[in-house]
């Protein structure tokens, strides 16, 4: 039965760490955005778009956490009997998105803060600023992919 607790640690890490990465990233972009808006309020829409981008890591983390919760029956009818081995398997599967979500959220935020500086000067280059941030996003997507493939491989 202790398998459930270990699997839940996986859920906590996926949602918690990836969510923290997003929160920090969004926070960083928000500070920069405020600096720009205090001089040029017309750019609010553009900055909001940029600020939202590091939010995806948190969503990926929540998705991974939700998949695990569904698998082990926390969401649904009743809890499934898990061995410790199976519990650890869930924990391991959660780690890619937990780790990469945390770091990529922060670094995407830093790139986007620079993009805010970019559109302060050249609003027409918004798209390029987004492309640079999407390069960071790639690795959060890879991590989510690994997490999901690992989850599919677990027999319960």
């Amino acid at each position: 039965m202790e398998g459930i607790a270990i699997a839940m640690l996986g859920v906590a890490l996926a949602v918690g760490l990836a969510g923290s990465g997003s929160a920090i990233g969004i926070g960083i972009v928000g500070q920069s955005a405020c600096g720009l808006i205090s001089e040029d309020p017309d750019k609010f829409g553009q900055t909001l778009l940029l600020q939202a981008l590091p939010g995806t890591q948190g969503i990926y983390g929540l998705l991974a956490g939700f998949l695990i919760m569904q698998d082990i029956g926390i969401v649904g009818e009743e809890l499934i009997e898990l061995t410790a081995y199976q519990g650890y398997a869930y924990l391991m599967a959660a780690l890619p998105i937990a780790i990469a979500g945390f770091s990529s959220g922060i670094y995407q935020g830093r790139v986007l803060a620079s993009s805010i500086n970019l559109i302060a000067k050249r609003p027409e280059e918004l798209g390029k600023g987004i492309v640079y941030a999407v390069m960071v996003e790639t690795y959060a997507v890879f991590a989510l992919l690994a997490t999901i493939l690992m989850l599919f491989g677990i027999d319960v």
Partner: peptide, 21 residues
């Protein structure tokens, strides 16, 4: 990232906007 350099985010973005003037 031992020292949080992002405390400069607001000021730098504001200065970038000011630079356009």
């Amino acid at each position: 990232m031992l020292i949080d350099d992002t405390i400069y985010g607001y000021a730098v973005a504001r200065v970038k906007a000011l630079e356009t003037h």
